[in-house]
C-alpha cells in the first residue's frame, strides 16, 4: 500500500514526514527495548518457556499482581473522579495547595513511598497498630500491596478527568434540569457518558503503572512466596540467578496480559464513544 492510499484527505501538509517521524520515534523508544526482551526470551524452547510462565509460584504472582492492580485502579477510578469533580466544581481556600498535592505520588521516589507506608501501616505504626487491634493486617499482606498501588496510581485518574470536566459545558446540565431531569438522571445520562472515556484512560494508566510497580510494593508486601510475592519481584529473582531468559519470559507473559487488558479497555472506550455519538445524533 502506498502512503497516498493510506492517507485520508487532509488539508494539513506534511503527512509523510510527520508519520515517518512518529513511526521512527515509536520504534526507537518503545519497540526496540521490547524486541530485545523477545530476543532474549527466544533462547528458550517453547516448552521451557511454557513451564517457566506456568509455574505455580509464577501463576500465583500473576493473580496477586493483576488482582491488586485492578482493584487499586478501580478504587482510584471512583475516588479520583470524585476529587477531580471537587477540584473543578467548587471554589475553596487552599484549593491550589490541594491541587498541587495530587501530583506528589509522581514526584516521590517509590521506595520512599513504600517505606513511609510501612512506617504508618506497619504493626508498630500509628495506624497499623490500631487496625491490628481490630484484626486487620495491612503491611505484609495483599492489602498493603493494594494500598501502595492506590497511592502511586492516584494522580492518573484525577489528571485525566480534570481537563475534560473543566471543558464540560454547565449549560448542558442546566438544560437537562430545565427539561425536567432529576439530579441522578442528569449525572447518569449527561455527565457520566461524557466523562467515561477519560475515566477509563485514567483507569488504564493507573492499572498499567500498578502492574509494573516494584519500588514501593517491595517494602510493604512481605514477599512471602505464593502469598505476597509480586511478579516483578520474581523477575528480579530470576535475574539474581543470572537466568536472563527466564526473567524475560515472565516479563513477556506479563506484557502480553497487560496488552490484552489495555486492548479490552481501549475497545470499551471506543464503544462508549461511538454510543455517545449515536446518542448525540439522535438528540440533534
Amino acid at each position: 500500500m502506498t502512503l497516498r492510499k493510506m492517507k485520508a484527505y487532509s488539508v494539513l501538509p506534511g503527512f509523510s514526514l510527520s508519520l515517518g517521524y512518529t513511526l521512527f520515534y515509536l520504534g526507537l523508544i518503545v519497540l526496540l527495548p521490547i524486541s530485545a526482551l523477545v530476543v532474549k526470551t527466544m533462547s528458550l524452547s517453547w516448552s521451557e518457556f511454557w513451564s517457566v510462565i506456568t509455574d505455580a509460584r509464577v501463576v500465583a504472582s500473576y493473580k496477586l499482581t493483576f488482582g491488586t492492580a485492578l482493584f487499586a485502579a478501580s478504587v482510584n477510578l471512583i475516588f479520583g473522579s470524585l476529587v477531580a469533580w471537587v477540584l473543578v466544581r467548587y471554589q475553596f481556600k487552599g484549593k491550589r495547595i490541594v491541587d498541587a498535592l495530587i501530583d506528589l505520588p509522581f514526584a516521590l521516589p517509590t521506595a520512599v513511598a513504600g517505606i513511609a507506608l510501612v512506617a504508618i501501616y506497619g504493626p508498630n505504626g500509628p495506624l497499623g497498630s490500631v487496625l491490628l487491634e481490630w484484626g486487620i493486617k495491612v503491611a505484609y499482606t495483599p492489602v498493603g500491596i493494594t494500598l501502595a498501588l492506590i497511592f502511586i496510581g492516584f494522580p492518573f485518574v484525577v489528571r485525566t478527568v480534570q481537563p475534560i470536566l473543566e471543558d464540560f459545558e454547565q449549560e448542558l446540565e442546566e438544560a437537562s434540569a430545565a427539561l425536567g431531569a432529576g439530579r441522578w438522571y442528569t449525572i447518569r445520562r449527561v455527565i457520566l457518558p461524557h466523562l467515561f472515556p477519560s475515566m477509563l484512560t485514567g483507569f488504564s494508566l493507573a492499572f498499567a503503572r500498578g502492574v509494573g510497580e516494584y519500588g514501593s510494593v517491595i517494602f510493604i508486601a512481605g514477599n512471602i512466596p505464593m502469598v505476597s510475592e509480586i511478579t516483578p519481584l520474581l523477575i528480579i529473582t530470576k535475574l539474581e540467578q543470572y537466568d536472563y531468559a527466564g526473567a524475560t519470559a515472565i516479563a513477556c507473559a506479563m506484557l502480553l496480559f497487560s496488552l490484552l487488558m489495555l486492548l479490552v479497555i481501549n475497545g470499551l472506550q471506543g464503544w462508549l464513544e461511538r454510543r455517545e455519538k449515536q446518542f448525540e445524533g439522535v438528540m440533534a
Binding site: I115, V118, A119, G122, P123, N124, G125, A139, Y140, I218, F219, G222, N223, I224, L233, I236
Partner: peptide, 21 residues
Amino acid sequence: NVPVMDSGARGSTNTFVRNGI
C-alpha cells in the same frame, strides 16, 4: 517463622531496626 522476606539486606535491616518487626 519469617513474617517478612525483603529482597535485600538493606530492606531487612530496615524491617528489623526501623519498623521493629
